[in-house]
Amino acid sequence: MPTDAQLLLLDGHIVGSILEPEQVTAAVREAFVLHSRRAGRVFPVVRERLHTGGVFGIKSGDVASQDLLGFKAAGFWPGNRALGGEPHQATVALFDPSTGRPLCIMDGNAITTARTGAAGGLGLRLLARPESSRICVFGTGVQARVQLEYALTLLPRRCTVQYVTPGGTPAPAFESAFRQRCDIDIARDHNDAVASSDIVITATPGAGPLFDADAVQPGTHLTCVGADTAGKRELPEGVLSRARIFVDDRDQARGIGECQWAPHLPCTEIGDLLASNRAAERAERDITVFDMTGLALQDLTVARLLYERAMEQGLGTSVAWPW
């Protein structure tokens, strides 16, 4: 057996330095199309609560035609905030499907942030009304920031942004990050903010409904990020039944996403739109929801991109991994 095999390690600094939004978007788009054509497999998701108060999950899959195989081990540990750390933690591993030998282990935090932001951007481009310019964001964390970043990049007009925090306390750092690109202020009333917005982004821990159902007006597009575990939700009852629902994976959304609360409602996988190169046919007053639970294929196509770039540029740390 070979004794000179190497395992490549990519830390968060390296991963962050070689992630480029356009390339990430292309990789995420590829993942959705692969999934639509069933050319890539998504294995059953593991998502379990721990005795420590954290949530641990594994998303895995493969693309046989590309010899792409791997998983992401990730979760949420709220206690990390008190330690000065990031509550979301993720690690991605790629394997040689012919031998099972690990090829690369990389920090998955930046990958998760970037691929989820790109997915939200793709959904917004396909589903939101083109003239949208009023945005409501629930949350001010990493995912709220990246979703708003993509929205401001994609929308053609200067936007007005209202953001909602749990206690209604302003978040100066969040505001300053976007002040030059939009008119931004904290929402004084979350229902009023939803009612006056074209786009609503929910990027919270998913502890419960964030607003009243009747606050959502005809024509609104909702990007839903926080429901990714059984029992989580951000939307109130009554919104999904009024909406056209789009998901990354139908079964997964009904198991751990917003659709778990209305599994009988029809929904469309967004990869089907991308595979056919068409936007959703929406009426002016249609409410659209993109229920994002995150596909293993998104992590894998982005990780493959990073692995290839790191190998080309000689980045990362190689350690002996004889087998």
Rank of each mutant, 00 (worst) to 15 (best):
F178V: 03
D198P: 08
M1Q: 09
M106A: 13
A74R: 00
L300Q: 11
F95A: 03
E48D: 01
A82L: 02
A296Q: 01
D62A: 12
D272I: 03
P97V: 13
P21L: 08
V55K: 06
P266W: 09
N277R: 15
G231M: 11
G139P: 06
A195K: 08
F95T: 03
G206P: 09
A119P: 11
A230V: 15
R101N: 05
Q89V: 14
N191M: 09
L68D: 00
D286E: 06
S318D: 08
V28E: 02
A275D: 13
G219L: 11
P263I: 05
A90F: 07
T220R: 02
P156E: 07
G121P: 13
D185P: 04
D189Q: 13
L50W: 00
A177C: 13
F43A: 06
L235F: 02
L315R: 13
G123K: 04
V45H: 09
G100S: 07
I184D: 03
H190C: 15
L222K: 08
T220Q: 00
A144G: 14
D248I: 09
I111K: 06
G167Y: 04
A64S: 10
N80A: 11
A73C: 08
V142Q: 14
R125T: 09
D198G: 08
L274S: 01
P97R: 12
L124T: 04
T223C: 09
D62W: 09
S60G: 08
L297F: 10
G53P: 02
A320F: 03
A110E: 11
L300G: 11
I105T: 12
G208Y: 06
L8V: 13
F138Y: 12
G316I: 13
A114F: 08
R254T: 03
T288E: 05
L127Y: 06
M311G: 03
E312S: 14
G141L: 07
G167A: 02
P263H: 02
R250E: 15
V92L: 12
E175N: 07
G208S: 11
A310M: 12
L10N: 05
L155E: 11
E237K: 14
A31V: 07
Q147Y: 01
A203S: 11
N277W: 07
N80F: 06
G123L: 06
T91M: 12
V239H: 04
L265Y: 07
A296I: 08
P170R: 12
T204Y: 06
S318W: 14
A110C: 06
A90N: 09
P322T: 12
Q147E: 01
E284D: 10
A253G: 08
G141A: 09
H221D: 01
D198T: 04
A39W: 00
G121N: 10
D96L: 01
T301W: 01
W77I: 04
H264N: 14
Y307N: 01
L152M: 07
E258R: 11
V302F: 02
G61Q: 03
A227Y: 07
I186W: 02
M1R: 09
E131T: 13
P205E: 10
Q162R: 15
T223E: 02
